[in-house]
Nucleic acid binder design. Structure first.
Lengths: 189, 189
DNA sequence: GTCTATAATAGGATAGAC
DNA sequence: GTCTATCCTATTATAGAC
């Protein structure tokens, strides 16, 4: 670790930002080096496995960050509605209102995607289970809760793509707004 | 055009498949050459602008293909419900039940994305307008029709990501199944 | 741990013969 | 139009000094 420079946390944050902006395939070692202020040799010191290693560690770093910012608050004793709303606020901030891409998506689409298979599947599962738990807490039947959770993740990932493609972040904002009311709504009879 | 070999249509099809499988950034000229059976020089003969040019022409090719397979059938005199179902069947086949990525998404995420800005925005708009028209035809109010259209595109793009990430194409199948009934449903009062 | 230098390779792109 | 050969740059990765 650079004594006076960046902490490993900060290094991982900057690597994540670079992967999210340029994509995994699009991010070169030169860019990753510039983003962190670490020379290539230093990068290889911390990440002996090169780019794949960086992405794996960034993924673990993200998991820890989400645990704190998104999953832990779900264990409070607030109402499910408030907790859902807090999660959506966190997500909206994390994606900067639809301007920043999702790391999971970037890695899913990479040439080295096989290397990230397990951790990616685990992350998606964790996210969906968290939302499912919230829906169960709100009194929804198990099958409905599951599909609502799946739908939340699907729509957020999709909204990020469409916002980018259509060049309009409002798509993302509308999706978040709709999820705020639809995820825990009573099923139609 | 190779006299005895592939038609330009077929060349574009194979390029599209390669971009969808490996991603735009991940597809090398060597792979694109192998996929089409054309040497690099031949590729540059048909696509003087290189990779960017290939992707642009592939995008136009896709637009024409979708026009025929997806948009034109919407102008028949069948019921909106049947036409929606036909569109979803076409999409499900096009994405091979969630196993094949979306070209639009691949290009949105590429390092050369700026080069594809206009055509991508146009494609998304065209797709959404088509669904919006269907919803209007089914008697939905304009604002609802618009958001249903947006939602269909968002959820399909998202389902492709999540299916890949979670390693389970069932997510895609469930999304398609749900869209079949939800897109044209009467709004809640 | 970090740097400079450099190896080794892959990538995109072009020249010129046929 | 297609091929072989080649150029040039960027890229990943490593060696070795400090």
């Amino acid at each position: 670790m650079p004594a006076p420079l960046l902490s490993k946390e900060e290094v991982l944050d900057r690597l994540m930002r670079t992967f999210r902006e340029h994509g995994y395939d699009g991010a070169s070692l030169a860019e990753l080096s510039a983003a962190t202020g670490l020379g290539k040799s230093s990068l290889y010191h911390y990440f002996p496995g090169g780019k794949v290693d960086m992405a794996k560690q960034v993924l673990e770093h993200l998991e820890a960050a989400l645990e704190k910012a998104m999953f832990e608050p779900l264990r409070s004793n607030k109402t499910p509605e408030k907790k859902l709303s807090a999660m959506l606020d966190t997500l909206s901030a994390f994606y900067d209102g639809g301007r920043l891409a999702c790391l999971l998506e970037r890695l899913c689409a990479s040439v080295d995607r096989r290397s990230f298979r397990r951790p990616l599947a685990k992350m998606f599962d964790k996210w969906m289970r968290a939302v499912e738990g919230l829906a169960l807490e709100a009194g929804l039947p198990k099958t409905v809760a599951r599909s609502r959770a799946e739908d939340l993740v699907v729509r957020i990932e999709g909204a990020l793509i469409v916002a980018t493609g259509a060049g309009d972040t409002k798509v993302f904002a509308r999706t978040i707004a709709d999820l705020r009311t639809s995820v825990l709504a009573c099923p139609r009879t």
